[in-house]
Simulated assay, not measured.
Amino acid sequence: MALTISFDLQEQDLDYFRQLMQKTERVVSHHSSEEILNAAKALAGEVQNQVPEFVAIRLKQLETLVAMVEDQDWDLTEEEKLDVLSALAYFTKPEDLIADHLPVLGFLDDAIMIELVVQSLADDFEAYSQFCTFRTNEIERRGPDAQTSKADWLETKKQELHSWLRRRRAEKRSSTGGGGFRSVFSFRR
């Protein structure tokens, strides 16, 4: 028997998570990009088989965010890397809202934070997922005797998706009337 529980986070609830992220960012600002990525990877890797499915799904998303930063073919700008790293900074702190050792619920706060990060970076996440799917399909389709190099066709697709992503960001900024960053977890001043 499965049990479905759903809940809505109101703006004041989101503010609480934003404040947690800002507090975390101040505490971990001395961490390097590598330390932030390693902490996110550690969280995802260490507990993958020990958590309920709703958490495991979010941990896979966390792994995708890490891959987005590390993927040489995707080649994020430094500013774009900072956006993702700022969102991942939460996972460098050892203490949680809910202690991780509690069965089932221990990773609920981590799952919520991952979900908020993924929603906040939804366009980035979607573009990168499309890029990975394209890359996998093209490698399979072209085979080892392809006439054009991997760099040629990946660069074309990457540029197409990066252009799409920048247009989406610009549309969102203009529709909200602000010129600010799209993420609820931005720490850039």
Rank of each mutant, 00 (worst) to 15 (best):
L65R: 01
D71R: 01
D75S: 11
A111I: 12
D71Y: 04
K93A: 01
Q61V: 00
P144A: 11
V104M: 05
A89Y: 06
M113Y: 03
G106K: 10
D145V: 06
D109I: 00
E95L: 07
T136K: 15
M113L: 03
T133Y: 11
H101Y: 11
V117W: 07
T77V: 02
I98Y: 09
T77Q: 01
S86R: 00
A111W: 05
I98D: 09
K81N: 04
A67N: 12
D75Q: 11
I98G: 06
V104D: 04
D100Y: 08
A146Y: 06
I98T: 06
F91T: 08
K81A: 08
A122L: 03
Q119L: 14
A111R: 12
P144Q: 04
L97P: 02
F125A: 09
F91M: 09
W74E: 05
M68H: 03
E70R: 10
D123V: 11
S120E: 04
E126K: 15
S120T: 10
S86H: 01
L116F: 05
I114G: 00
L116P: 02
R142C: 06
C132E: 12
F107G: 00
N137Q: 13
V66F: 04
I139W: 10
Q119D: 14
M113E: 02
T64G: 07
M68C: 11
A67S: 12
D83R: 15
T136R: 14
A89S: 14
P144Y: 05
I112L: 06
V69C: 12
F134R: 06
G106Y: 09
Q130E: 13
E80S: 10
Y90T: 10
E63M: 10
I139G: 04
E70V: 01
Y128W: 10
F134N: 04
A99K: 04
L82N: 09
R141V: 03
A127V: 13
E140F: 12
Y90L: 12
Q130H: 10
F107A: 00
T64Q: 14
A87G: 12
V118K: 06
S120C: 03
G143F: 06
E126T: 14
I114E: 03
I98H: 08
Y90W: 14
Q72S: 13
P94G: 13
L82K: 13
I114A: 01
